[in-house]
Computed example of a mutant assay.
Amino acid sequence: MRVFGSTVDDQTRCIHYRTEVDVIAIKFRCCRRYYPCHLCHAEDADHEAQTWPRSEWAEPAVLCGVCKGEMAVQDYLAVTSCPSCGARFNERCALHSHLYFEA
């Protein structure tokens, strides 16, 4: 799975978010491309970001950078670690969820 933006390693960390637990990328609804964060999308894409509406939360749109497994939005929002490999996710990402997913 290709991850766009300013990544700094093969686990989807980027120049904006690169702690041990910053290991997810989000498929932006507008372009169907994975980016590590909203800032990477803003810098790289030639369009405004669109959030995933609740009616589409069953869509696989979150990528674990550790095992490369995809998760549905609804599944990602219900966990703090990858259901496939157990990698911990940054719980502070919830502060930005409104940038990706309909509130």
Rank of each mutant, 00 (worst) to 15 (best):
R2Q: 15
V3L: 08
G5Q: 06
G5M: 09
S6V: 03
S6P: 02
T7Y: 07
V8T: 15
V8Y: 04
D10V: 14
D10K: 15
D10N: 15
Q11H: 14
R13H: 06
R13M: 03
C14P: 05
I15Q: 13
I15F: 01
I15W: 00
Y17C: 03
R18A: 13
E20N: 04
E20T: 10
V21F: 06
V23A: 01
K27E: 14
K27V: 07
F28H: 07
R29F: 10
R29A: 09
R29E: 12
C30H: 11
C30W: 09
R32T: 06
R32M: 13
R33P: 00
R33F: 04
Y34I: 07
P36Q: 10
C37K: 03
H38G: 11
A42L: 12
A42F: 08
A42M: 10
E43M: 13
A45L: 09
A45Y: 05
A45V: 10
D46S: 12
H47C: 12
E48N: 08
A49I: 09
Q50E: 15
Q50N: 11
W52N: 02
P53F: 10
R54Y: 08
E56R: 11
A58H: 15
A58S: 14
A58G: 14
E59K: 07
E59L: 04
A61C: 15
A61Y: 01
V62R: 03
V62T: 04
L63D: 02
L63N: 00
C64D: 03
C64T: 02
G65T: 08
C67Y: 09
C67R: 07
E70G: 05
E70A: 10
M71D: 05
M71V: 06
A72S: 14
Q74P: 00
Q74W: 04
Q74G: 01
D75L: 11
D75Q: 14
Y76E: 03
L77D: 04
L77E: 01
V79N: 04
V79F: 02
T80W: 06
T80D: 12
S84P: 00
S84W: 07
C85R: 06
G86N: 08
A87D: 01
R88P: 00
F89K: 00
F89A: 00
N90M: 03
E91R: 09
A94G: 06
S97G: 00
S97V: 06
S97A: 07
H98W: 07
L99I: 05
L99F: 10
Y100D: 00
Y100E: 02
F101A: 01
E102K: 02
A103V: 10
